[in-house]
Simulated assay, not measured.
Amino acid sequence: MAPPPATAEPPSDNPAASKLHHAKVNLKYLALGSAAGVAPASLRTRSILTTTRYVVRYIIKRAIRYAKYAVVGALVAAVGGGLLGTLGSGLAFFAAPGIGVGMGVGVLTAVAKFGWRHRGNHLRGGAWEGMKARAQAGRDGAADEKIDASSLKKQQEAESKARRADVWMRV
């Protein structure tokens, strides 16, 4: 006995299709992207839905990141208030970090992380000075890249061996 034929959705560009069908296709494309079984027929609709999908994902990721900073600030405020409250309630009223201080700690953490990620090599001296010196010496860039790649690989292998040798560093 043969299985019953699978009911396939009608194509989305069918003008006779209902608005409900078009809405289902659009929502499925918005949620799943190109992995959705049926895509909207209009290029304009596909591009708007794809852009909306990426913007919503970006906003959610940023909201989660900032929520983590808020949690850090709240923990600092709670621990600080609790410790100072047990030491001296009169002093804690004036010295305990409040919501503003907790938010400030979260913002400072965010600024420090951003600065370290984006300007870290500048702050640490980085490889820029070495690259400038090699360029002024007239060295070949391709040869320097090969040398850097091999030295980086050797360094990574040495770190990996050291990590494997140290039992307490295993994750």
Rank of each mutant, 00 (worst) to 15 (best):
residue 24 K to V: 08
residue 102 G to S: 10
residue 44 R to D: 15
residue 95 A to E: 11
residue 55 V to A: 15
residue 160 S to M: 13
residue 45 T to K: 03
residue 154 K to S: 07
residue 168 W to H: 12
residue 7 T to W: 10
residue 82 G to A: 04
residue 139 R to C: 09
residue 50 T to D: 03
residue 81 G to F: 09
residue 78 A to P: 04
residue 25 V to Q: 04
residue 104 G to S: 13
residue 26 N to E: 05
residue 167 V to W: 09
residue 128 W to Q: 14
residue 6 A to L: 00
residue 106 G to F: 07
residue 71 V to G: 09
residue 167 V to Q: 12
residue 9 E to Y: 04
residue 66 Y to N: 12
residue 150 S to K: 06
residue 36 A to V: 01
residue 32 L to C: 11
residue 77 A to L: 14
residue 107 V to M: 14
residue 134 R to T: 14
residue 160 S to K: 11
residue 114 F to Q: 10
residue 27 L to D: 03
residue 117 R to C: 04
residue 57 R to M: 12
residue 132 K to V: 06
residue 91 L to Q: 05
residue 112 A to Q: 07
residue 89 S to L: 06
residue 2 A to H: 13
residue 67 A to E: 09
residue 17 A to W: 00
residue 162 A to L: 04
residue 72 V to S: 02
residue 82 G to P: 04
residue 144 D to Y: 08
residue 24 K to I: 06
residue 108 L to G: 14
residue 101 V to K: 15
residue 112 A to P: 01
residue 117 R to Q: 04
residue 93 F to M: 15
residue 169 M to D: 15
residue 30 L to V: 09
residue 62 R to F: 08
residue 18 S to Q: 04
residue 158 A to C: 02
residue 145 E to Q: 07
residue 30 L to Y: 12
residue 64 I to C: 09
residue 40 P to Y: 07
residue 87 L to P: 04
residue 91 L to V: 08
residue 66 Y to A: 05
residue 7 T to V: 07
residue 58 Y to M: 03
residue 25 V to M: 03
residue 145 E to T: 12
residue 8 A to M: 15
residue 33 G to I: 01
residue 75 L to H: 04
residue 37 G to Q: 12
residue 147 I to D: 10
residue 105 V to W: 01
residue 4 P to R: 02
residue 166 D to W: 08
residue 78 A to F: 15
residue 2 A to L: 01
residue 38 V to C: 03
residue 101 V to G: 13
residue 88 G to D: 14
residue 168 W to N: 14
residue 90 G to V: 06
residue 2 A to F: 13
residue 159 E to V: 13
residue 157 E to F: 06
residue 24 K to T: 10
residue 103 M to W: 01
residue 50 T to C: 00
residue 138 G to E: 01
residue 41 A to E: 15
residue 83 L to T: 06
residue 121 N to D: 06
residue 21 H to V: 00
residue 87 L to D: 05
residue 101 V to Q: 14
residue 61 K to P: 09
residue 133 A to W: 04
residue 164 R to N: 07
residue 93 F to S: 06
residue 114 F to S: 02
residue 92 A to S: 12
residue 111 V to Q: 05
residue 87 L to M: 03
residue 98 G to T: 09
residue 19 K to G: 15
residue 121 N to F: 02
residue 2 A to K: 14
residue 51 T to Q: 13
residue 78 A to C: 14
residue 52 T to H: 09
residue 2 A to M: 13
residue 153 K to V: 03
residue 88 G to F: 07
residue 32 L to D: 06
residue 43 L to C: 04
residue 76 V to E: 07
residue 9 E to G: 09
residue 146 K to Y: 01
residue 81 G to V: 10
residue 27 L to I: 03
residue 128 W to G: 15
residue 139 R to F: 06
residue 93 F to R: 00
residue 49 L to E: 02
residue 15 P to D: 00
residue 5 P to T: 11
